[in-house]
């Protein structure tokens, strides 16, 4: 496909009419504008995070800090609450991703086996949950009754196996060359062996996709923290801390408290600068990872998007 497209492009480069040139220019301008609109808010936030907090309040910071400082980062990283919340975020991301990838792959493998007698039953049981769910309150009551409120595991158990993940992994396994799995069976490999030493290693691309989606989901979650663990500070996450600051600075009455709290000696931080700094801290891990997995998640989305 890519070769065909390349050939097509080469052929079309031969002659360009005036109209085509205009089209090209307009297209280039529009796409550049899109990049600017997408990136500007991030770059602006980055600039504010490196700018002196009191100076930022005067406004007029666009793409470059006016008064450079690392004070905001020092404050955010030294703040015990934020540091601890970051740890919890990392923990839930790592643990949640590993468990989800492993468990989803396992179920996906079983429902990709044509001979499995419970295949239909398992598939339908999972797919039905795309249509019906108990909703907020019943789920909340269940978590409470299971003793998961006030527990770290409330971040892990509810999302253990997702239907979307199941679908994309299953269709990937189904598209693996038949003879590989066949010859494994002939060599006497049982289902455990086949799964762990053949299917898992061969499925790296799709597992990378699922890992990215799950990791991003876990890292970005704040609502489950708010719902189940808002009164358990030791289980707070980075995103939830950021959300609280956001809401506080929204109400703005609470802002003076926070400034006072951050006013340590000579240095001074403001909700605005802390917010910007935490935004950067919360986004950097994602920004560093997703571009490298682009090839994989694009493929995953195409499969999932059509089959979903």
């Amino acid at each position: 496909m890519a070769e065909l497209a390349a050939k097509r492009r080469k052929r079309r480069r031969i002659r360009m009419s005036f109209g085509d040139r205009v089209f090209e220019a307009v297209n280039f301008t529009l796409l550049t504008l899109l990049m600017v609109v997408t990136l500007y808010p991030f770059l602006n936030t980055l600039a504010v995070s490196f700018n002196d907090a009191t100076d930022s309040l005067k406004g007029g910071i666009y793409l470059w800090p006016r008064k450079w400082t690392l004070e905001n980062y020092r404050f955010v990283l030294e703040e015990a609450t934020i540091f601890h919340a970051t740890l919890i975020s990392v923990l839930r991301t790592v643990l949640g991703t590993v468990l989800t990838v492993l468990c989803s792959a396992m179920v996906a493998y079983t429902i990709s086996r044509p001979e499995y007698v419970l295949r239909k039953f398992v598939t339908v049981a999972f797919i039905l949950t795309m249509y019906v769910n108990g909703g907020l309150i019943p789920t909340f009551l269940l978590m409470r009754d299971l003793g998961l409120v006030g527990s770290f595991w409330v971040y892990i158990w509810p999302g253990l196996v997702g239907v979307f993940n199941l679908i994309i992994i299953r269709s990937f396994i189904e598209n693996l060359p038949d003879n590989i799995l066949e010859s494994a069976k002939i060599d006497g490999a049982g289902d455990y062996r086949t799964f762990f030493s053949i299917v898992l290693p061969l499925s790296t691309p799709v597992l990378a996709t699922v890992a990215l989606f799950t990791g991003v989901y876990q890292w970005n979650s704040w609502f489950d923290v708010f719902l189940y663990n808002s009164s358990y500070e030791h289980l707070s996450t980075l995103q939830y801390e950021l959300q609280k600051i956001l809401q506080n600075s929204n109400a703005s009455q609470n802002a003076p408290d926070f400034i006072a709290a951050g006013n340590t000696g000579a240095s001074m931080v403001t909700p605005y600068s802390i917010r910007s700094t935490m935004t950067i801290v919360a986004s950097v891990p994602i920004i560093m990872v997703y571009p490298f997995l682009q090839k994989y998640f694009v493929k995953g989305m195409v499969v999932g998007g059509v089959k979903e």
């Binding site: 079983t110 398992v122 949950t129 309150i137 789920t139 009551l141 196996v161 289902d191």
Partner: peptide, 22 residues
């Protein structure tokens, strides 16, 4: 295959179907 999938069906029942009772 049963061991690899049925525990997750139980999980599914508890976390996704049981709340419907609510």
């Amino acid at each position: 295959l049963v061991v690899m999938s049925v525990p997750f069906v139980v999980w599914l029942f508890v976390f996704k179907y049981l709340p419907l009772w609510g």
